[in-house]
Write a protein that binds this DNA or RNA. Structure first.
Length: 950
DNA sequence: ATTGAGCATGGGG
DNA sequence: GCCCCATGCTCAA
């Protein structure tokens, strides 16, 4: 990477493209022409780099040649209007070429253009090796030098010499800035690269893979500027490639000139072909690539990334699939044959392909090795970048500028939108701020992808399922199922080592990161939260950020923040990311699921319109591109990325729905009068306070057909008949009965008896009699679950016991504090440990304590009275004492022994033997409500109580 | 009995 | 109809 000391001129080619450039379909102008501070991706980390030199290339950049065809593009031309044929010089951003007069072209071709015309402009530097003076400030000479890691430059000749002794990654680092010599460089790499001793070190692979891929950004960007496709539909349509042209150039490239002119000549030819040829992927080429990759099985694991069906891959490879053009070459030789061929047939889609991945030509099978792999990876990156540039329209560019999904083009064109990183500028900056110490100056952070954690991901298994394409595109290639360890840093800089591996799955692969539990827990992530993966280049470090689902403000890449301990409801997942004040901020991420285009075709996804529909829609805010008309409204089903399973099961959701509906019925406006707000002509009541829960009432139609509602007094539990329009506060007593003065006191008798009431109201209003001392088992209706259990214990004190077995938990109602209702949906909550002090456990302990105390007390009373109260046919034996009797089946079926010691930390359990408690089963906080009738303490207790009425 | 590893299944895109 | 992938299921430690 370039050093901070590098002057603007040399720094210019470095990454950090402006938004426009990043998304711009084409540009020939070198980075120095960038005028705007570029937003990510990627973001430059480290000391602020000197502003790119604004020096313009040798000619009016904004004057399209076609507008002045007879004028030499070179502004310094002494005779710009001289007659004579114009010749193509360097490529312009518009996609055209600088038309030069013969004289200027001669200089250009001979490599003396800058000497002739740019002597007076800034950007001249000396080669660190030979001292040769080079102009580093314009596109014309951009190929003539290489930026050194240590700062400064080397002329291309010196660079080439030094490359012979450089490691691949080094070469790539420096080569990033010498795109003109890709062919030569490639040859050098292949010839000079030596794999690490022994096994193909996974570490090496990792490092280098990352290094290479990380450099891609630079390379891509820089090259993008130089080789980018012209904008317009003619270029690189999805599914279209320049394969023919590329193939044609393969051999040419081998001996292609290294001079700028020579390079440009190649470019010219390429583009000349490319502009006119939109041939789809050539099967032959795919085949060739495939075999290249496979030619060296020792180094390339064919099986990697879908190798199980490589044969299919090769077959499918002939099918043009534009969508993944991006990583075509990358995958190809980077052990992703299937992906490439299957998904990325359009290998070598664009621009640099010929220069890079094809440098060796289809015949160089044998020489394929890791180095080449890297090369192709790099080239693919280039391709992807270029590819994306070419296929992303202005809308998408605008979206990018607005901070939408940011990642390299590969991801955009290849990955499902749900995996697009939604990192914001601020997040990136924040992240960058976390790494200055770990990164070299000018490090680049490239958001790779993100994934919303599924229940499995966030579960205790510790396996994070990786999107296949993401894994194959950004993680090291692995051929063995065991995979390899992968170091990932979190936002705080802590390094984690996960096992990146895969499982064979249906002729494919399923990639997982194992051992993520500590990290997940460290970040306090839950299902629905999102983890993001970024890469810091050129170090190639993987950085794992996160975003809490419940967080409206992005937590991404920030030190661990505990949003809250409660798992957000599924709905919370809908908005994952956060609004950002910055114009580039990513908008709240929409839910993924339907965010992605329905079409699975990569092509379609890559299509701007589709993008809008898909991922881009998510965003948002006013002014963002997503708000542009024509966007397709997300389907209602798109509730979130693959969170369907995260959603509650049908039954659970049903239950929740019912509860919610009930809650709705109980909602009452707050006491404070609302203010009226008019929005678009519609009046809205705006409450400063949240609604309150009203008292539950029951609507009935009496025999005369009149509608009423019945409510129960808070104090006396008598039921009062009210008009249907009555809204009761949560606490309502007879004294509040303004509709029936005669019964506005608890002293007043109930209008009808309980039997009559019971016929009308589905609820058992028995509690009304509680005040009278008579315990009606019906009252258990009001108390559910453990409440019931506790109540039973209370009721059981010499009172009547439940006359009917209510083993099934009644419908949950608002405010229900039963064990069921106070727990998260079945299976959704964490398992409670014996030492757990959560509300649930504490409640259970408390109730159990009460229960046990009363039961024991009652038992003792019974024991003392038993002799005289014993009646024939009634099994009044103290069940607990004998361990037999009540509910033998249920207890027997229970795997867990009870421990009645309610005071102990593990006091939820009831030790049947020691305490003589009828409750043999330990209260299982993790038990499923639906199984309550079989295993729940309540059912057991009830059964016990039923069987032991006295 | 618990936990982990790995494969199988099947819904959804 | 294929592929992805979330999760279930089975088996072994």
């Amino acid at each position: 990477m370039s050093s901070p000391a590098q002057p603007p001129s040399t720094r210019a080619p470095a990454p950090a493209p402006s938004p426009s450039l990043a998304a711009a379909p084409i540009s020939v102008q070198p980075p120095p022409l960038q005028q705007k501070p570029p937003p990510p991706p990627p973001v430059v980390v480290g000391p602020p780099a000197p502003a790119p030199q604004q020096q313009q290339q040798s000619g009016p950049p904004h004057a399209p040649p076609q507008q002045r065809p007879r004028i030499c593009f070179n502004a310094h031309c002494k005779d710009p209007k001289s007659d004579g044929q114009r010749r193509r010089g360097w490529r312009l951003r518009s996609g055209d070429f600088a038309d030069l007069c013969d004289r200027c072209y001669g200089s250009f071709e001979q490599g003396s253009f800058c000497e002739n015309f740019h002597l007076d402009v800034a950007g001249w530097r000396n080669c660190e090796s030979c001292g040769k003076r080079l102009h580093c400030g314009c596109i014309v000479s951009v190929h003539a030098y290489v930026l050194l890691d240590t700062g400064g430059i080397d002329c291309i000749l010196c660079a080439r010499k030094s490359h012979a002794t450089m490691a691949p990654s080094q070469i790539w680092s420096s080569s990033v800035h010498m795109p003109q010599n890709v062919a030569d460089r490639k040859d050098n790499y292949v010839k000079n690269w030596r794999p690490p001793a022994g096994q193909f070190s996974s570490q090496w692979r990792q490092n280098n893979l990352w290094s290479v891929s990380s450099i891609q950004s630079d390379l891509q960007q820089r090259l993008a500027y130089e080789f980018d496709r012209p904008s317009g539909s003619e270029k690189l349509l999805p599914g279209r490639t320049y394969i023919h042209a590329h193939e044609k150039k393969f051999d040419d490239i081998h001996d292609r000139p290294t001079t700028p002119a020579g390079m440009n000549q190649i470019i010219r030819e390429r583009y000349a072909n490319g502009h006119t040829q939109h041939s789809s992927l050539d099967p032959t080429y795919s085949y060739a690539l495939y075999h290249r990759e496979g030619s060296n099985p020792n180094i390339h694991d064919h099986s990697h990334h879908g190798g199980e069906n490589d044969h299919l891959s090769s077959r499918k490879g002939v099918t043009p699939d534009p969508c993944s053009a991006v990583s075509a070459a990358f995958k190809l030789d980077s052990h992703h044959p299937s992906s490439i061929l299957k998904d990325d047939p359009s290998t070598l889609p664009v621009g640099l392909s010929p220069s890079f991945s094809s440098a060796n030509g289809p015949k160089d099978h044998i020489r394929i090795g890791p180095t080449q792999q890297q090369q192709q990876m790099a080239s693919s990156s280039l391709q992807k970048q270029l590819y994306s540039h070419s296929l992303i329209d202005n809308d998408f560019q605008a979206q990018l500028r607005n901070g939408r999904p940011r990642m390299d083009a590969k991801a955009r064109s290849q990955l499902l939108p749900r995996y697009w990183p939604r990192i914001t500028d601020q997040e990136l900056q924040h992240l960058s701020g976390e790494y200055p110490k770990n990164s070299t100056s000018n490090s680049v952070i490239t958001p790779l992808f993100e994934k919303m954690l599924s229940a499995s991901d966030a579960g205790r298994i510790g396996r994070l399922v990786l999107p296949k394409k993401c894994a194959e595109a950004y993680f090291p290639p692995i051929s063995q199922a065991e995979g390899l360890p992968l170091k990932v840093q979190d936002a705080s800089g802590k390094e984690w080592v996960f096992q990146f591996r895969f499982w064979p799955n249906n002729n494919s692969r399923m990639y997982v990161l194992e051992g993520v539990t500590p990290c997940i827990q460290s970040m306090q992530l839950q299902a629905g939260d999102t983890v993001t993966f970024s890469r810091i280049d050129p170090e190639g470090k993987l950085v794992m950020g996160f975003r809490k689902a419940t967080n409206l403000s992005t937590e991404q890449e920030q030190p661990i923040k505990s949003v809250n301990g409660v798992p957000p409801p599924p709905e919370a997942n809908i908005k994952v990311s956060a609004p950002d004040s910055s114009p580039n901020a990513a908008v709240p991420r929409p839910v993924k699921a339907n965010a992605e285009s329905k079409s699975s075709s990569p092509v379609e996804q890559a299509t701007p319109s589709k993008m809008d529909k898909g991922a881009l829609t998510q965003k948002e805010g006013p002014g963002t591109a997503s708000s542009s008309p024509g966007l397709v409204k997300r389907k209602a089903t798109s509730v979130g990325p693959k969170i369907k399973r995260f959603r509650m099961d049908s039954e659970e959701s049903m239950e929740l729905k019912i509860t919610w509906e009930e809650a709705q019925e109980l909602l009452r406006p707050p006491l404070k009068a609302p203010s009226i707000v008019v929005v678009d002509g519609h009046e809205f009541e705006e409450y400063e306070e949240p609604p309150v829960l009203g008292r539950r009432t029951y609507f009935v139609t009496d025999q005369s057909g009149e509608n009423h509602q019945w409510a129960q007094c808070e104090d006396c539990s008598k039921w009062r008949k009210l008009p249907v329009d009555a809204l009761l506060p949560s606490k309502w007593t007879c004294s509040d009965n303004k509709w029936d003065p005669e019964r506005s006191s608890c002293d007043s008798a109930q209008e009808i008896n309980m039997e009559e009431l019971a016929e009308m109201i589905p609820v058992k209003p028995g509690a009304a009699k509680k005040s009278k001392g008579k315990v009606d088992t019906d009252c258990i209706d009001v108390s559910d679950g453990l409440d019931t259990l506790a109540n039973l214990a209370i009721l059981g004190e010499g009172e009547s016991l439940p006359s009917q077995p209510t083993t099934r938990h009644p419908r949950h109602r608002p405010g229900c504090s039963c064990i069921v209702c106070i727990q998260p949906p079945s299976g959704k909550g964490p398992k409670h440990k014996q030492t757990c002090t959560c509300n649930v456990c504490m409640t259970v302990r408390r109730r159990f304590r009460t229960l046990m105390m009363r039961r024991e007390k009652r038992q003792s009373v019974k024991d003392s009275e038993m002799p005289r109260r014993k009646e024939p046919g009634q099994s009044s034996e103290p069940v607990p004492q004998t361990g037999s009797g009540a509910a033998p089946t249920s207890t027997a079926s229970s795997p867990k022994k009870a421990d009645t010691n309610g005071d102990a930390p593990e006091g939820m359990a009831v030790d049947n033997k020691r305490t003589s408690s009828p409750i043999k089963n330990q209260i299982d906080l993790n038990s499923q409500p639906e199984r309550e009738d079989e295993q729940s303490p309540k059912s057991d207790a009830m059964r016990l109580l039923r069987d032991n009425p006295t």
